[in-house]
Amino acid sequence: MLATGVVGAVEDPWIRWSWISGHADIIVAALVQHIQLTLIAVLVGLAIAVPLGLVAWRSRLFRGPIFSLTGILYTIPSLALFSLLLPFTGLTIWTAEIGLVGYTLLILVRNIVVGLNAVPDEVREAARGMGFRPLAELARVDLPLAFPAIIAGVRIATVTTIGLVTVTALIGEGGLGSLIYDGLLRDFKTPLVVGTVLCVALAVMSDLGLAGLQRVVTPWARSRAVP
């Protein structure tokens, strides 16, 4: 980062350590809220995306509309989506969460469908030959084999959501975004730097953690490169 401050009356350093130690409670609260907003969005997103993904996988009729709708949601800029909800849901967590969940859907549904489509027909035949009922086949053959693709989707959805949560600072939520916004509004850069660094760290650690989970849960996929 360049250390060229804005030309101003008082030189404001990029980071003032005394502020950090004096405001640890605020920083931790912002981080916790950020994690909460992200977790709710990704978990609710998954809860909606799994059935949607199964329908899109099984039914050619619904696949198109499901992909189109989630794609449209995904294309609408976050600030616009939050603003479309705001007159109805107000300055509540609902506005933030409905928007955030909306963004996870395309990523999750698409990866679920792609993962399930990639299950080889022979494997499915074999499962049927072994006497698996459709539901057991889904739970014990299809979904486990699709798991690497699904978790790849969860990783992207999580990292994307962590970034988007910062925008909700503009509608009264924000997590670490509220620190970033605070840094913008005041002539004081430390909260901005702290918020940004923690946000990137949170994204990287979540991504690595989920990648680790993927390796642990799908030992058979280790030799293959998975996105």
Binding site: V6, V159, T166, G177, Y181, L184, K189, T196, A203
Partner: peptide, 21 residues
């Protein structure tokens, strides 16, 4: 682009505002 995804665009904007006024 993976790194790019981890950096929130909101933060990039605010950082740019601080760097360039």
């Amino acid at each position: 682009s993976n790194v790019g995804r981890a950096i929130p665009s909101f933060a990039v904007l605010v950082l740019a505002a601080k760097l360039f006024g």
